[in-house]
Nucleic acid binder design. Structure first.
Length: 347
DNA sequence: AATACGGGGAT
DNA sequence: ATCCCAGTATT
């Protein structure tokens, strides 16, 4: 038996029961695939349930607001996925009569759908013969065939896509794709792969050469920069001054508090005497302040602190607005900020 | 070809 | 601390 046939057999015996595997409805599969981008199944599952319940069809989704989608997405990260989903839902309603496309060629045109996701949706919903290549597939192929080309270089990506296409069982692409990914996720794991119970280990180059730990090869690049977010919390107990973020930086279009970003860690007193603090008023009174909360992201480390001040600013800057404290619960607020706010206002 | 974009879990 | 997760869009 070849690799595909063996992995399909393994899959049929060992697969997890996941809700998006019980349908061929392109809309539902799209929902699951976007949510699962760069996200573990266990983390994405509750969000999938939430979105499927809120938006049973693509028309329901298209009728949502961006604020609402981002609020549902809160805590999952990579929020552009949510924003792009709304664009795509609306496009499907307008340009495809509300019928979610199932062909790779149409899918790849939509916002938030790249090569992987187009292959996944087209194969799962319509059995189109497109091979998915995700993190799992890179790992399985690199090990089984002993390929040491970096998986994250443009050249490497082409190589692996080519091999994935050759290995694909064109007669049952959906099953094949599911099997490759499930096998990678459950058995051929990044650390401590379960080679002892692996159905293909005797033909696996990495196993035979004892090289599973060194494959796949990945170029690492990430230079992490440090940023210092100094939030000012201004509240009279009824309302609080909030800020809607712009559409460029992290947490685009989400809500946080007015902030002074500094290039180094400063103490509250120093921050309030910064020229940038003038927009909040002069001779500011610091009522209290939080400790420094370290919020670690892929490309940056955020050092966040909250300064509670007494004065209300005379003029509101762009993005600033007052809202009832209760309304905060309905707004999409990033993890590093909502943690403190919840604690501060006791909800 | 590089970089930006979150948050969490495993090791 | 480091890796990496059912990746995509932008520069």
């Amino acid at each position: 038996m070849d690799l595909s046939a063996r992995l399909i057999s393994w899959y049929q015996e060992n697969k997890r029961d996941l809700p998006w595997r019980n349908t061929t409805e392109a809309y539902i599969i799209w929902l699951s695939e976007i949510i699962l981008q760069q996200t573990r199944v266990e983390q994405g599952l509750p969000y999938f349930e939430r979105f499927a319940a809120h938006y049973p069809t693509v028309s329901h989704f298209a009728a949502a607001t961006e604020d609402e989608v981002l609020r549902l997405w809160q805590g999952l990260g990579y929020y552009s996925r949510g924003r792009n989903m709304l664009k795509t839902a609306r496009q499907v309603l307008n340009d495809y009569n509300g019928i979610f496309p199932t062909s790779y060629t149409e899918l790849i045109k939509l916002k938030g759908i790249g090569e992987y996701t187009a292959a996944a949706i087209s194969s799962f919903s319509a059995n189109e013969a497109k091979a998915v290549v995700d993190g799992n597939v890179y790992r399985v192929l690199a090990r089984y065939y002993g390929i040491d080309e970096p998986i994250n270089s443009p050249k490497g990506k082409k190589t692996f896509q080519q091999i994935a296409d050759e290995v694909l069982d064109v007669n049952r692409p959906a099953l094949h794709n599911q099997a490759m990914m499930e096998f990678g996720a459950m058995l051929c794991k990044p650390k401590n792969p379960a080679c002892g119970i692996c159905p293909v280990h005797l033909d696996c180059i990495a196993f035979k050469q004892n090289a599973t730990t060194s494959l796949p090869v990945k170029l690492k690049n990430v230079k992490v920069k440090k940023r210092y977010f100094n939030y000012l919390l201004i509240s009279d107990g009824e309302t609080v001054l909030m800020n809607k973020r712009g559409d460029k930086d992290i947490w685009a279009n989400m809500y946080d508090l007015p902030m002074i970003e500094t290039t180094e860690q400063l103490i509250p007193n120093e921050i309030l005497h910064l020229p940038e603090a003038a927009v909040f008023g002069k001779n500011l009174t610091l009522l209290s302040h939080s400790g420094i909360i370290k919020h670690v992201l892929t490309h940056q480390q955020l050092f966040i602190q909250f300064l509670i001040i007494k004065e209300k600013p005379a003029d509101l800057q762009p993005g600033w607005f007052y809202t009832d404290i209760d309304n905060i619960k309905k707004m999409a607020i990033p993890k590093g900020v909502i943690i403190f706010i919840k604690d501060f206002f006791n909800f």
